[in-house]
Design a protein around this nucleic acid. Structure first.
Lengths: 344, 344
DNA sequence: TGCTTGAGGTAACTCGGGTTACTAACCCGT
DNA sequence: ACGGGTTAGTAACCCGAGTTACCTCAAGCA
């Protein structure tokens, strides 16, 4: 086994090239405004190449006082993947942030952690990155202490935040419900097993839209189980459409409905929220969570924060509805088994 | 707007406490084997607290020669999320690696990049992390140069690698096909639009199993379009089951089949690969890609590499089959519309 | 008294780059 | 022969922690 050689440093390169460290730095960083004859330049460069010199990013960042990368702190449940919890949302966020950062000439490092082992504020604000984007169900306490350090950071979505970029949850819910209303539905339920900030806002948009159209939302804001019972009993007040907190939950509902002989969309229309990989895979009508826009916006603002500028405390970005095939006009004989397959 | 104060350093704390830097380090790092009276200890600690001292991780890591974190380099397509490409796999990897790292007392930083803006070897081996896990469709050239630097790294899955941890793709395919055979299927197709290493191995497992059972695989190794045509034509050689390269592609097939009036699983059984969020959401029978095991194994090995030990060049981990509801015995009247709903 | 021992503490150095301020040598024009 | 400007280059310091080697002083003991 080869002994791991200590990695060559700038000093080694300089010595090998017979110049001072300073000169080596100037050459290797291609620093403008200094006259260095080609001969010297070549000597340094070939010494670097020959020794296999690679700069130590840690030392460089320490010296410059900037790392050139930003972090995104995402929390994941310790439990196995469970689509009801919106993991596909995280994926969209990570992709979006990666793109946005790369567009801004920054590297993104994702600091993922599981909720049973959250990072401390000290750990994430320890200057390995220039600023932070906080996402999702970060423990309130953690978010609070991170903000308290004054480290440049911005939150995407809900949770404790002093600065926030978020999707228009209320508006998205309105779009979902308006779509179902336009198809002719009147008994539209909202289904969510949780009560996060996002849930509250989506529920609010749903309720307001129902009421604006003179429809009652009462009894339609329930967990899936009682709704399913009503669907199976065929009672008159059963919903004909359900707007779900997110795509994963919508997928769960559809699965459960189909296992009980309820067809989607023939017997029941379902709308999700996020419109990520799951919605795509399930062909699910869903409110598109504008993740590319949110992440881009967050990265831009973070950049401004790092530069010492001020940014608005809250930015709300509009959603759109991606209509796929989990929604259709309500059937008037909902439990009849009619052999019509939906054509695209 | 408050001017951003320069962050207090160890020197500031030491001065405020009236001790030397050395003493401050000893106190703050709780270094054993040094006798420091409580009075002094308290002075340092309260000075640190009062100044809001937080250690600069960059400087600490530089000094120690270890960062205490490892990186995982994942590539994402520049295109929007597309479940056919296995993004849910990445999510599983990131989650798994996060857990494994946290179990090993390491922090994980994810270096995500889009394929149109790949990182250079210099960038990722610049000592901001102690070692690297490489995942997925990293450009061969990039992987090669990273390995060439001698930086501790290990690959999960396919792609150029000097050290690799991977799922048993062949074995997984065997499990999938055996399951379908046991249900009574004989015309089992393999569907994949790609030809990566993983595809090759899965295809190989499928073909070998078919042949071992005296069945011909000929004409069943095709893209979805021709298979769909045969299904619609109802020709005698149409497949009754399809094993797909991954869950996203399986989801696409199911969607497409259903839009064409082909029921799953009544008319067609479908098996995926990965068994991630999409499989869960779609209730899809799928070969479980052992991501937690793979990531844990990769992290362990990386740790050993960092410590200077040797590790085996390749480790293959076994898969299992997660049987859900996209597979059923073949129907003998495949296009008849029989109204039986499957109970879980 | 002289010697050891341990408590309490620090100066000076390291990690690997980046920067500032300065110098020596040379060329040019007068 | 002198000032001024340019070229080529460097010593010495910085970033913020962590370490090594050493010092001083008081107590304990023969």
């Amino acid at each position: 086994m080869t002994v791991r050689q200590p990695r060559p440093t700038l000093r080694d390169v300089a010595e090998a090239a017979g110049v001072s460290k300073t000169t080596a730095v100037f050459v290797l960083n291609d620093r403008p405004g200094f006259s260095i004859p080609d001969e010297t330049r070549n000597r340094v460069q070939s010494a670097a190449k020959q020794l296999g010199y690679r700069r130590n990013g840690l030392a460089a960042a320490l010296s410059r006082g900037r790392t050139g990368s930003i972090g995104i702190v995402v929390s994941m449940l310790s439990a196995p993947l469970n689509p009801q919890l919106g993991e596909d949302y995280l994926l969209g966020i990570i992709l979006g942030a990666t793109r946005a950062a790369s567009g801004a000439g920054l590297r993104l490092t994702t600091i993922a952690y599981t909720t049973d082992n959250p990072p401390t504020a000290d750990e994430v604000t320890d200057n390995r990155v220039d600023g932070l984007i906080l996402v999702g169900i970060l423990h309130e306490e953690v978010a609070r202490t991170i903000y308290a350090t004054g480290f440049p950071c911005i939150t995407i979505g809900s949770g404790y935040a002093e600065r926030r970029v978020t999707a228009d949850n209320v508006g998205g819910a309105v779009q979902a419900v308006e779509h179902l209303l336009a198809l002719g539905h009147t008994r539209i339920a909202y289904a969510s097993p949780l009560m996060t900030e996002a849930d509250r806002e989506r529920r609010q948009g749903w309720r307001e839209t129902m009421e604006r159209h003179g429809l009652s939302a009462d009894g339609l804001d329930q967990d899936w189980e009682p709704l399913l019972q009503r669907l199976l009993n065929g009672t008159a007040d059963r919903p004909t459409a359900i707007f779900c907190r997110n795509d994963g939950y919508a997928a769960f509902l559809i699965r459960s409905a189909r296992q009980n002989g309820i067809r989607v969309p023939e017997d029941l229309s379902v709308v999700g929220f996020d419109s990520g990989v799951i919605a795509e895979a399930m062909d699910l009508t869903s409110v598109r969570n504008p993740l590319p826009e949110q992440t881009k916006c967050a990265v831009d603002m973070l950049n401004r924060l790092i530069a010492g500028e001020d940014v608005p405390p809250i930015t709300v970005l509009p959603t759109e509805l991606d209509i796929r095939h989990s929604t259709a006009p309500p059937s008037h004989a909902p439990r009849a088994r009619i052999d019509t397959q939906k054509e695209p």
